[in-house]
Design a protein around this nucleic acid. Structure first.
Lengths: 347, 347
DNA sequence: CTGAAAGCGCTTACAG
DNA sequence: CTGAAAGCGCTTACAG
């Protein structure tokens, strides 16, 4: 932070060059209709002759507003989150906002620092996919700062906070039912994360589907592994260590499912044949795995633009008193090769 | 941009509450040793009682400097670039900078808009992985704005511009030699992008290795497909349509290699057995493909922190006259299963 | 239709 | 060790 920036021309310089006041220059820059066309032309000419560049920071200070939005992200190693980021950044840019992006890597201290920094840098609003174990009070605290906040993917306690995510329970119910309809009776769930809302919703959708078809769920089928590729691999090892083992597995997300596919392959087995596999998120790569992955999708593009829209309309309001919107987009099942029927008389 | 922000306390409020001047408050906030400990304590107490939050934007305006750095990214669908982003953001945050991130999706108009916006928002510096076909003058233009720039991964003409990337030619030479040493004599190259520096360097490393072992390169082996998963799949179809076909393929990057793996699988064939495959970038997923991918790695973490370091030291300088640094990190080959020897007497 | 003046929230010489 | 004053580059009532 040593070097001086912005040693260029200011509206004052334009003013003298064009022979007007800086008020006039400012109005021209704002495309005010109050200014005579001829004056406008003269000012614009002076501006471009001087290589003028608008100082957004100065304008923000004076106007007491901001054109930047903070996006706080818990895990960029998850391609789905990256797709979300791309979508949000795109939608906000279209609305004239610049996006500050910060990555917390699920670290609460980091998240606290990042929030602090965003606040000091005057973000107009915040879209946040919170780190695990984020205290429930955080959203309210952020609101108390006067900064509109949209929670992404992970609801956090209070229904008063704008939240955009997916309908996990319904989605996982559909996914599980798909397997049951294909003839699977022993279906496992890989990648629990006990105590977390999303994990709870996903697993309860799975349980509801099983119960709805009168199928029991053995405790050992709720496979509590990390939500990573490695976790998926571990899940497969556990499944194949069981005596009377499941013929299908619903995975917490595509990342876990990718791990499952990999470990199956390593064992010389194949998803959709030796074990039916379903993921969640429909990340771009899920179409290109071996075999292609059956998965749940709400569309990262859609979720990202919904979240942006909610935030943008919040920014257009003058008060923050309108009730929070809670939008949970339904997911649909994309059926690919990995979710084949159980092998006949072989398991 | 309607709502007012920052309606909170200012240093002026602190000043009256603590019974000092705002100069003193400012000095306290800067932890100046000039201020008596007792005064400091009183000011800090007043600040926290008022819930004061520092306005970085106002400070930046006055100091004519900035604590934000722009990162411009060409393609977030490439996991390697995401790893780079994470690394850069981390390194800059540690140095007290906030990162503006923008995605161009290889679109030149978008890139121009983004550059404009970053400039108006007073970024202190820029790290840019330029979009394809970025005009060679762009880096010089950015420098003329007084904004230090580090080019990432893609050199762009002038050697005067700080650039951090990898040694593509040497890397691809090593990769190709690895295949030759394993007994492959007919090696293809998948994912040309004629006319681009990186593609040229990579393919020329490949050619150098082949020539070095007295092996001819058939024109049809330079397979010009898009640098995507789909491109990789197409490359496999072309290879298997050849009469006397290659037994190995060096891919432009991991993305292309993933497509190759997928198409092989679809054809009931396997990388490392029916076709040896090598990628480049060593993205996290390359360890988890079926089979695991042999690939070139310079380490995204390392590249990202190098680029950040170059920029940070540029920011510490007062002039921009020191010569540009050109750092091309060597890559090492990570040997995994996909690069097995050719099948005996079977091809 | 245009200008003079005040002010956004800070920092920084300069006095004392 | 602390304060009064000027100013960063803008915008915005208010006059005229």
């Amino acid at each position: 932070m040593q070097r001086k920036i912005n040693t260029g021309a200011t509206i004052q310089d334009i003013a003298v060059k064009a022979g007007v006041s800086k008020s006039t220059v400012s109005l021209v820059l704002q495309q005010s209709p109050k200014i005579k066309a001829q004056t406008t032309a003269r000012v614009m000419a002076a501006a471009s002759a001087l290589g003028y560049v608008y100082n957004q920071g100065a304008a923000n200070l004076r106007q007491r507003r901001s054109n930047t939005i903070g996006m706080i992200i818990n895990d960029l190693t998850n391609p789905f989150i990256v797709e979300l980021l791309v979508s949000v950044e795109h939608a906000l840019a279209k609305a004239g906002y610049t996006t500050f992006m910060s990555h917390t890597a699920e670290d609460l201290d980091m998240q606290a620092r990042v929030l602090q920094s965003m606040r000091q840098n005057n973000v107009a609003g915040l879209i946040m996919s919170p780190a695990l174990d984020t205290p429930k009070e955080i959203p309210a605290t952020i609101r108390s700062w006067g900064i509109p906040l949209v929670l992404l993917m992970r609801p956090l306690g209070g229904s008063g906070i704008d939240t955009v995510g997916v309908d996990n329970r319904a989605g996982f119910k559909v996914a599980t039912e798909h397997l049951v309809e294909r003839g699977h009776k022993r279906v496992a769930f890989a990648g629990m994360r006990p105590g977390y809302t999303v994990a709870h919703d996903r697993s309860s959708g799975y349980r509801a589907a099983m119960a709805g078809h009168g199928l029991p769920v053995d405790d050992s089928w709720m496979i509590d592994v990390p939500i990573t590729l490695a976790g998926g691999r571990e899940a497969v090892r556990r499944i194949f260590a069981m005596k009377h083992r499941p013929t299908a597995v619903v995975c917490y997300n595509d990342l876990v499912a990718f791990g499952v596919l990999h470990e199956l392959d390593k064992m010389g087995k194949r998803a959709g044949k030796h074990l039916a596999v379903i993921g969640c998120d429909n990340v771009a790569a899920s179409e290109h795995t071996n075999p292609p992955l059956t998965t749940l999708s709400a569309g990262a593009d859609l979720i990202g633009s919904l979240a942006s829209e909610v935030l943008l309309s919040r920014l257009r309001e003058s008060s923050m008193d309108t009730p929070g919107v809670q939008h949970f987009e339904p997911m649909r099942l994309i059926v690919r090769e990995s979710s084949g029927p159980p092998r006949q008389r072989r398991v």
